[in-house]
Amino acid sequence: MKSSLISLTVGSAITLIAGAVSAGTLDTVKSKGFLQCGSNTSLAGFGQPDPQGNWKGLDVDFCRAVASAIFNDPTKVKFTPLAAKDRFTALQSGEIDALVRNTTWTLSRDTTLGAFFGAVNYYDGQGFLVRKSMNIKSALELNGATVCVQQGTTTELNLTDYFRANKITYKPVVFAGSDETLKAYDSGRCDAYTTDASGLYAERLKLTKPEDNAVLPEIISKEPLGPAVRQGDDQWANIIRWTHYAMVTAEEQGVTTANVDEMLKSTNPDIKRLLGTEGKFGEGLGLKNDWAYQIIKNVGNYGESFERNVGAGSQLKIARGQNGLWSKGGLQYAPPIR
């Protein structure tokens, strides 16, 4: 009888793993009382616990914004640190409610992985890190080089494409974890380390001698990073993407954590719709009308979150560049709230 018990347990385990999550995610999240967010294991600027154990980062802020929109409380979120190769399984199985972990939006992830991407909270591209002592000025000089790369990423795929397209070769050393990958590069096993440019800035800080390493000028891919949810739950997908757009709209309109209470009195119709003093836009999402007010009050607008986590106010000091507002030459553009 023992083995039939085992088979039943295995059966129900797999059922659990792959069982479709039938109730709407919003209802599930509300009844749980918190949002379960798939995050980085540790990536400065995007998702990383600080020495006190508080999660910090652009992606972490995003999860806190969603929690604020639902619960009026940015702390009602739990983080599940995920290695790159495990993240979509965690999403498919319902272990997490949203995957917010510098994840690139690609067609096949939308189709074959059952993921749904709706917004881009960081426009990125892939770059290379090399030791200055090697005297390499361009990625095209990497012919024959050994490259350390993390498994289960678009990084792994772009790398191949780039070398193939340029008719040069490389020797891959592929790790599942980001720390192992970086350590292998740091110890000299690899001549180059490659990942999203934002990741390069963050990971470089972990090297024994960050200043001995340089980022090469080539950006070899498009990496639109954004939150992903499961396919088939439109309400939840809306909440996720409009959370980002609310943050961008707030920046467009100059609404910040500091002035949001004052802005409640604004007569500007765009701001009134954003903050819920006019219309019932929050209800349409299944939230309260002050959903965006809560996001801005608790987390801030997109620009504030950017500067604090990856921009001038952080160790990474990344310029706004492509992530600036569309009106300032960047790519961040929010559809109108109306």
Partner: peptide, 9 residues
Amino acid sequence: GLYAAYTNA
């Protein structure tokens, strides 16, 4: 058990 697990997944 195996069949159910497979089809369910």
